[in-house]
Design a protein around this nucleic acid. Structure first.
Lengths: 339, 339
DNA sequence: GTGAAAGCGCTAACAG
DNA sequence: CTGTTAGCGCTTTCAC
């Protein structure tokens, strides 16, 4: 057995007695090749176990079938769902998503972006509208479509697809006000790290203000959002302010923890206390009570974003600056009184 | 503004008055370059907004800093945790993970693998030991380290890192037997789709048999494992076999759903009924009762796998065929009586 | 329908 | 410390 050297087109060419060029044509289903030649080539390629070298191919053709997807985390169920949407659409094309994770760190985001752009992807899908100056500069001069997703409250570099978190916050506030709750507490992530949560909170307080109300107590946390965290924070807040009649959580996981705590305590939900989260986490479907929440249209966002990239990959001249706003809906569940 | 053409080294070379080769050295921190030249180059590169073309670089250097990670799903929290482990280690190197998702479909796995191998990655990390013949063939002839993860009950193509699911099943069975439970039901995914669950089940029944017991009832499902599913299945099984005294679930999510159901029903856990899952999902920390479970060492698996790749990337001659078995531990939680 | 030549943008290897 | 030369493996372009 000769020292293993990666197979090249030339090997297939020699094995099949067909020129490299024609082998290349066959392997890419390009141009007219006689059935006989095609068979010879495919046969040779398969028995050799040839895998084309996309690096060389991409360099020569100036075409890369990769789409860079840059997200803050995989642990937050939101992003896997966005990925599902993206895959749903890209699977129909020859584009391939490549995922980069930033862990909510702007510095990492910059590095991941740089790294991915250096592979000259056919498109970039990136979470959020807030980026460092350097990242924005890279996105702007990237020679491919850029879709910023999840959020539309801001100025995109190119295209954007998402929901208005400010509006989402307002909608939830309105539902709460309409249901007659008055003494409202907020529990969520530390804002500077989470722009979308901040915008929801802003919309939320704004709509409360319009109804003459304000948030009576608030508490912020850092780190992973498990149910444990929600449980602890809820216990603390209710100890501090026992007369609250509603708790608004920045996401469903901590909300579910809070809900479990309240049920343990025998609190009468949703009458003496209402609760709501954000994000419609379906994993939580089995809880004894359904938390009020709001669907953030994650799969749809991924699909729409991917569609923009795919469309422009087909026709690079068209498109640009697309802006797609999706509309979330409030689910009252069992923890927010209907009116 | 001239028609936008991607910047090349030559542009930086011209802008800085330094040869392409030296520019290249600076940008890669390679070899000795005088501080003066270095500054000129970096300055020029930054103001131009140059991003190197890794495609060309990789072709020339025959080196790619990508590690292909192939996993069945992102929705199953297991895999994001493995990814965390991988990132923990690769972040210290210049290697970059690239994720491909197969959705548990062998055909997709083949395609994703082919696609990734065609980019000539520095390593492959792939979930499971079971692959189609074509996939195995590709892995075998891939010219890079291949680490199969999660499971070690089988023959690896090259290296493997994981736990023995058969042993995990046995361990849980022993804990259950020792605790004195006798009438045991099993609820899990359809086996042909999930080799690791199957192996756990095999080990489980084997250890039960050794204690003179067998599974009294079992039920399988397909599709996403949310708490809802676990709740429904549990209700059905307990209706069918009300005298069961233990329920073993193939994962924590459905187990948690079952637990919620039983608590709703006022069943006395863990006395009249014990329960256990698999995978130590920490998101569930806030439930009123902690499900007995078993840690599958996901982060550690990712770390160990990445370390193998990183080590071999440094010294391509060394290594090969590493096999790392990690040992899970049983957590009794509140749903499995201690002895 | 098929082949030959040129070069994609970078880096290895060597020369100064 | 810096520059020159020759490809990396494929596809584009053009010729037959």
């Amino acid at each position: 057995m000769p020292p293993r050297r990666p197979l090249t087109l030339r090997d297939v060419s020699e094995a099949s007695g067909v020129s490299e060029m024609t082998v290349s044509r066959v392997l890419r289903n390009r141009g007219d090749v006689s059935a006989a030649t095609r068979d010879k080539v495919l046969e040779a390629a398969r028995t050799l176990g040839y895998v084309p070298n996309k690096i060389a191919g991409a360099l020569a053709s100036q075409r890369v079938n990769l789409v860079a997807v840059i997200i803050p985390s995989l642990s937050n169920m939101v992003f896997p769902e966005v990925m599902t949407g993206i895959s749903n659409v890209l699977d129909e094309t020859d584009l391939q998503p490549v995922v980069g994770v930033t862990n909510y760190q702007p510095a990492r985001a910059e590095k991941v972006l740089y790294e991915m752009l250096s592979w000259r992807p056919s498109g970039v899908i990136i979470a959020g509208l807030e980026h460092t100056d350097a990242a924005r500069a890279m996105l702007r001069s990237a020679d491919c479509p850029v879709v910023e997703i999840m959020d539309i409250d801001g100025d995109p570099v190119d295209a954007m697809v998402g929901i208005s978190h400010r509006r989402a916050g307002r909608m939830m506030a309105q539902a709460i006000v309409e249901a007659g709750y008055k003494r409202i507490g907020f529990l969520g992530t530390k804002m500077p790290l989470d722009h979308r949560a901040r915008k929801r909170f802003e919309g939320f307080t704004e709509a409360l203000a319009k109804a003459g109300l304000e948030v009576e107590d608030q508490q912020f946390y850092e780190g992973g959002s498990g149910m444990t965290k929600g449980r602890e924070m809820t216990a603390e807040m209710l100890k501090r302010c026992p007369d609250l009649d509603f708790l608004y959580y920045s996401n469903d996981m901590i909300g579910a923890g809070g809900l479990m705590y309240c049920l343990d305590q025998g609190i009468d939900i949703p009458n003496s206390l209402g609760m709501a989260g954000f994000n419609a986490v379906e994993l939580l479907g089995g809880l004894p009570m359904q938390l009020a929440t709001m669907d953030a249209c994650r799969t749809e966002i991924g699909e729409a974003a991917a569609r923009i990239i795919a469309t422009r990959a087909e026709d690079p001249s068209g498109g640009g600056g697309e802006c797609i706003e999706l509309t979330p809906t409030v689910a009252h569940g069992d923890t927010l009184r209907a009116v």
